[in-house]
Amino acid sequence: MSELSRTQSATSRRPDRAALAVAVFLGGLAGLIFWDSSRLSAMANYSKIGPATVPFVIAWCLLGLAIWTAVAAFRSEFPARERQDIPPVAWIVGGLVLQMLLLRIAGFSIATGLLFAFTAAGFGRRKLWITIPVGIVLCLAVWLIFAGLLQLSLPAGPLEHLFF
């Protein structure tokens, strides 16, 4: 038996750990939805179809996907994944964290404009002095449409208070 075939047979017997982690996450999410929707069904006992029907269907689908993913992980049916490039992911996650931290303080336009700029940096556009103002202007337009025309409530900051 050659070295390559021995390595392939040894790796083919081990389950794909990343796929198993995804299967466990999907199963946990399904369990959480089952638990939460079981509390909803107690609220409305007068009909067979109620507020818990769709969450139950979604939970069953997630459970099915979890089982399917686990089986595929044990069969090693997943294609080889490419190596993850960490800096772009860090830019995007950093933008999300910054948006969550600044949303109430700076308002929707500034916080989401920064998320826009950090996401653009994650995709290779590193000129933040251009992408930050562009993102803020685009997000201000979105805020004006949602808050002004549609009368939806989005967090307002100092920039939004200039308009309303």
Rank of each mutant, 00 (worst) to 15 (best):
M1E: 14
L4A: 08
S5Q: 12
R6T: 13
R6K: 13
T7C: 09
S9L: 11
S9K: 12
S9A: 15
A10I: 12
A10K: 15
T11A: 14
T11L: 13
R13K: 13
R13E: 13
R14Q: 14
R17M: 13
A18G: 15
A19Q: 00
A19N: 01
L20V: 05
A21T: 10
V22R: 11
V22C: 10
A23Q: 02
V24P: 14
L26G: 02
G27D: 03
L29C: 11
A30D: 02
G31W: 12
F34T: 05
F34G: 01
W35M: 10
S37T: 10
S38P: 10
R39A: 12
R39N: 15
L40T: 07
L40K: 07
M43A: 14
N45H: 13
Y46H: 13
I49S: 06
P55R: 00
F56Q: 12
A59E: 04
L62I: 08
L62P: 02
L65N: 00
A66D: 00
A66R: 00
A66W: 00
W68H: 10
T69G: 03
T69V: 02
V71A: 05
A73M: 03
A73E: 01
S76N: 12
S76F: 12
E77A: 14
E77N: 09
E77P: 11
R81V: 04
E82R: 15
R83I: 12
Q84I: 14
Q84T: 15
I86L: 11
V89Y: 14
A90E: 08
W91R: 05
W91D: 08
W91C: 11
W91I: 05
W91V: 07
V93N: 06
G94H: 08
G94L: 01
G94W: 05
G94P: 06
G95Y: 01
L96S: 05
L96C: 07
L96F: 10
L98Q: 01
M100R: 08
M100P: 07
A106L: 09
G107I: 08
G107C: 01
G107N: 02
S109M: 08
I110D: 06
A111F: 06
T112P: 04
G113V: 03
L114G: 09
A117N: 02
A117E: 01
F118S: 09
A120D: 07
A121N: 08
F123E: 07
G124C: 05
G124H: 04
R125W: 14
R125Q: 13
R126L: 11
K127F: 13
L128P: 05
W129V: 15
T131M: 02
G135K: 03
V137L: 06
V137G: 07
L138C: 10
L138D: 05
W143T: 05
W143D: 02
L144M: 13
L144F: 08
A147W: 05
G148Y: 06
L150I: 01
L150K: 05
Q151P: 03
L152D: 07
S153F: 09
S153K: 09
A156M: 06
G157N: 06
L159Q: 09
E160S: 01
L162K: 09
F163K: 04
F163T: 04
F164L: 10
F164P: 06
